[in-house]
């Protein structure tokens, strides 16, 4: 299958000295929701601006559905939608007028214009406010209008730079619900930058973490969480008498990294709770130990992000091994 985005060794150096991107490799599948996570100044926006043909990289190659983004930029512009981080609608005209002007700029034929605009308004839930001046809109409505403008041409890829920055939780939820509805309807690939981990966790199929111009980790949300090897099973046992052989048996399991016992509580460190739990239960069962309660603690995407992207000062001063992208507790 053709990749929606295929980035190979992209480097961007500003003014001959600032290395904003340093050999980025990235693959995005068609019809995926892809989140690019990274701390401020890590190169997220630079990468997006290269992918949306705003400027060229210093070196490297990038393709979108097999089309060279750098050399065939005019062609690529016809199939992408882009919503920058900053406001990108005119605030002194109405929402409908913004859509009308953008539909003309994007070249939506006049026969389809009305339908495109009403579709976009409907998808983004803006029908009722369409005729109001944009300066009277709330932040969430402005953002939905901006996305609506990008949906006019039914793009193959939609690029969103920090799509929900500065919005309240209900406005964020509304933006995403509308986006996912659109994506499911048209099979659009969505590529977005964010540092809201919960959004990446909830809505993305794949994630990449960028740090100082390099992709330090990529995969599905679950891959990334498992990669920390830090899931914990907390087993509350019915009896206090946990015999040593049972403990040894559990320790001997492949999937178990460590076991700590305190009173009737058994704390098991594992890679992946989904596969480890049945094995541990079976072992305990065989020894006739019954369980009162099981709690699983999994790393959140926040943990993943902090581990791979870290805080820049902390990485330099306290944990040099983190700089190589290895989990701090390995």
């Amino acid at each position: 299958m053709v990749l929606a985005i295929d980035v190979r060794q992209i480097t961007k150096i500003y003014d001959g000295k600032i290395r904003a991107l340093d050999g980025v490799d990235l693959e995005v599948n068609a019809a995926d929701v892809f989140a690019l996570l990274g701390p401020n100044g890590s190169g997220k926006t630079t990468l997006m601006r290269i992918l949306t043909t705003q400027f060229r990289p210093t070196s490297g190659e990038a393709y979108s559905f097999g089309i060279d983004i750098i050399r065939n930029d005019a062609w690529v512009r016809k199939m992408i939608g882009y919503v920058p981080q900053e406001t990108s609608v005119w605030t002194d005209i109405s929402g409908f007028e913004n859509l009308l002007i953008y539909s003309k700029i994007y070249g939506v034929p006049s026969s389809r214009r009305k339908k495109s605009i009403s579709d976009a308004l409907q998808i983004m839930g803006l029908e009722e406010m369409a005729d109001g001046l944009v300066k009277k809109y709330s932040g969430g409505m402005v953002r939905r209008l901006e996305i609506a403008c990008a949906l006019l041409v039914k793009p193959k890829i939609l690029f969103l730079d920090e799509p929900t920055i500065g919005l309240d939780p209900s406005a964020r939820k509304a933006v995403w619900e509308n986006l996912i509805f659109f994506k499911n309807e048209y099979g659009t690939t969505i590529f977005f930058n964010t540092h809201y981990m919960d959004e990446a966790d909830l809505y993305s199929d794949h994630i990449a973490i960028i740090k100082r111009g390099k992709i330090v980790k990529s995969g599905t949300v679950n891959d990334l969480k498992h990669s920390l090897h830090s899931e914990v099973l907390l087993l509350d046992l019915k009896s206090h008498a946990l015999d040593e052989t049972a403990l040894t048996d559990i320790r001997a399991l492949d999937c178990v990294r460590d076991v700590v016992v305190s009173d009737s509580e058994l704390r098991v460190f594992i890679d992946d709770a989904d596969t480890a739990l049945p094995k541990i239960m079976e072992t305990l069962w065989r020894k006739g130990i019954s369980i009162k309660k099981i709690t699983t603690t999994r790393p959140t995407l926040d943990d993943v992000f902090l581990n791979y992207a870290g805080s820049i000062t902390a990485v330099r001063k306290h944990s040099p091994q983190n700089a190589k992208g290895a989990p701090a507790w390995d």
């Binding site: 705003q54 512009r77 882009y82 920058p84 900053e86 990108s88 994007y106 070249g107 901006e146």
Partner: peptide
């Protein structure tokens, strides 16, 4: 330029 409109116009097929 300070808002995102110019970026967007430059990404439009025109």
């Amino acid at each position: 330029r300070e808002t995102g409109i110019l970026k967007r116009l430059l990404v439009a097929p025109a």
